[in-house]
């Protein structure tokens, strides 16, 4: 069998040298993990808006809110009770004539403080506990895991309630209560990650070059778990904020005359029939915080760990 061929310019059949690796030359500078994640996060509109709203709430709660208001969150004024939102009292006043604008932002400050505290505890207790437990393994790990298992056998809000009963309710007690249980989930996640990573080649290589255990964990294992840690932090924060508001709502949290979003919502729920704005305003701020933290958490999860994306 013969195939007919077209006539072509003979020069076309001169041999040429082609670099087989030409196509593999890297087109641009390498993109790092964090930069790559940031690019992905920027595409997530919900997460970006949430981040912006959170920054805004932060600024208003700590700086602008108290600065531009002439009222204090504690001053009672019996002649000006139950004023709806007016040009003087932007969020109205409560049953003691206290300014709701400053009280709501004082409550938001408590929430943000609790969120920050929970995040710090997660890092300094949860990550450290998990890293030690996972890296050392063996009997130490066994004991440390049993402790967590027992702690997890008790609903954490119940632990918090007991703590609030024993000590005087207040922001410090709430901090302790959250500190008692809030970190266990992070510890488990980090431990799992350590166990998964510690026998991988890069960690073995580092150890075989004489690095100390601490150095391996700090320089190799933790950096490789950072994405996971950040994702988890973003879910710890809203649950801590929720825990504080919950305790304050049932009367075990922040005590009068201090304000927390939980106690403001509780007061507002009682005035629902005639003064609903007392419920709406703190509720909106609270839900806004929760939604933004959750959306930002979802966004970070998708950005830092595309495999977990759904």
């Amino acid at each position: 069998m013969e195939t007919r061929h077209r006539e072509l310019d003979p020069r076309l059949f001169e041999s040429v040298e082609i670099d087989a690796y030409e196509g593999e030359r890297i087109a641009g500078p390498p993109v790092g993990f964090w930069k790559d994640s940031w690019v992905r996060l920027k595409k997530n509109r919900g997460a970006l808006i949430s981040l912006a709203v959170l920054v805004l709430v932060f600024i208003v709660a700590f700086v602008i809110g108290p600065l531009i208001s002439t009222h204090s969150p504690y001053d009672q004024n019996m002649t000006q009770r139950y004023l709806g939102p007016t040009s003087d009292y932007w969020f109205g006043t409560d049953k003691f004539g206290r300014d709701m604008w400053t009280r709501v932002w004082a409550g938001a400050r408590v929430s943000l403080y609790i969120g920050l505290l929970a995040a710090l505890l997660d890092i300094f207790v949860g990550v450290v506990y998990g890293a030690v437990s996972g890296y050392l393994g063996g009997r130490v790990d066994d004991v440390m895991q049993r402790i967590i298992e027992i702690l997890n056998g008790i609903p954490s809000l119940i632990i918090a309630i007991l703590a609030m009963i024993v000590f005087n309710p207040g922001i410090i007690t709430i901090s302790i209560a959250i500190g008692l249980t809030g970190w266990t989930f992070m510890a488990r996640i980090v431990r799992g990650r350590m166990i998964q990573l510690k026998d991988q080649e890069f960690a073995l290589a580092s150890r075989s070059l004489g690095a100390s255990g601490f150095r391996v964990v700090w320089k190799h294992l933790i950096p490789n778990s950072l994405g996971l840690i950040v994702i988890n932090l973003m879910f710890t924060i809203p649950s801590a904020i929720f825990a504080e508001a919950f305790l304050s709502f049932i009367g075990l949290g922040i005590q009068v005359p201090e304000a927390s979003l939980g106690s403001l919502i509780s007061d507002g729920a009682g005035e629902l029939r005639f003064h609903p704005y007392l419920l709406w305003l703190p509720s909106i701020v609270f839900c806004l915080l929760m939604i933004c933290f959750n959306l930002l958490g979802d966004g970070l999860r998708d950005a830092l760990d595309p495999k977990m994306r759904k």
Binding site: A245, I265, L272, P276, S283, C287, I291, D298
Partner: peptide, 18 residues
């Protein structure tokens, strides 16, 4: 799903009541 985990029952309850 996001609203469900963000709006706690102590906010939702009064909203439903109202």
């Amino acid at each position: 799903a996001v609203l469900g985990v963000s709006v706690p029952s102590f906010v939702l309850g009064p909203i439903l009541q109202y």
